[in-house]
Every structure is written in C-alpha cells, then in structure tokens.
C-alpha cells in the first residue's frame, strides 16, 4: 500500500503484534505504513473501515488506544510502546466497575 522513505525509531503494539513506527508521526500513518488497512468496525453494520482523510474530519480511523475508545488515529501522535487495537462497533462499558 505504502512504503516508508524515512527510518523508523520505535515500535508500537497493534492488535497484539509489534509494528515499527516513528515517534511523533500519527498513529494512522504508522499503521498504514505497516500495511494495516482496516482500523475499525462500524457501529452501524460492522463493516470494516480505514482512514479516509487523515486530517481529523472523517472519523473513519477510530481505534482503541491505551484503553481509550474511539480515538482518531490520525490525530494521535506515536509514542514508543503505545498499545492500540481496532475499535469494534459502539463504545462499550465495563459495567461491573460502576455498578457498585
């Protein structure tokens, strides 16, 4: 899909595997460079989606990042060791936690 012309300097976790990245670039770009096309499943039909605009407008690059859901990957700068996963459907709650 894409190839890098500049060296990477760290790794991040995506869906349980290590991906090379460059600190400071956007998470979305890092994933694209690693060949990741699908970032999320929509909460409407479950269809898989990847980024469209990379400038914060389309909300198609939503991921779960370090435990936070529905994060726009195109606006999240890479930090070494960050842990990200697909956003699967609607925001979910750990209901047990608040039910006390």
């Amino acid at each position: 899909m894409f190839r890098r012309t500049e060296p990477t300097d760290c790794t991040i976790r995506w869906e349980g595997r290590d991906i090379p990245a460059r600190a400071g670039e956007s998470l979305a770009v890092a994933l694209l460079a690693a060949g990741v096309a699908a970032f999320r499943q929509t909460p409407v039909t479950g269809a898989e989606r990847g980024p469209l605009c990379l400038m914060g407008a389309c909300f198609d690059c939503l991921v779960e990042l370090d435990g936070q859901q529905n994060v726009q990957a195109c606006l999240a700068p890479v930090r070494p060791g960050m842990v990200a996963a697909m956003q699967r459907g609607a925001r979910h709650f750990d209901l047990a936690e608040d039910a006390a």
Binding site: F2, R4, V29, C53
Partner: peptide, 27 residues
C-alpha cells in the same frame, strides 16, 4: 469508497509530507 484501502489524495499527501510515505504496489 468505504472499503479500507480507499483514501483521498489529500490524505496520501499528508502521509507523504508528515512521514515520507509513498504509494507502493497496486496503487
């Protein structure tokens, strides 16, 4: 156009400017 792998030209240009990403393969 909603399939992963379909993006805008503007998005690809952002990837190029900010991280030096070039399209490769069947682009």
């Amino acid at each position: 156009w909603t399939l992963p792998g379909v993006m805008t030209v503007g998005a690809a240009q952002i990837a190029l400017k900010t991280a030096g990403l070039l399209p490769e393969g069947k682009a």
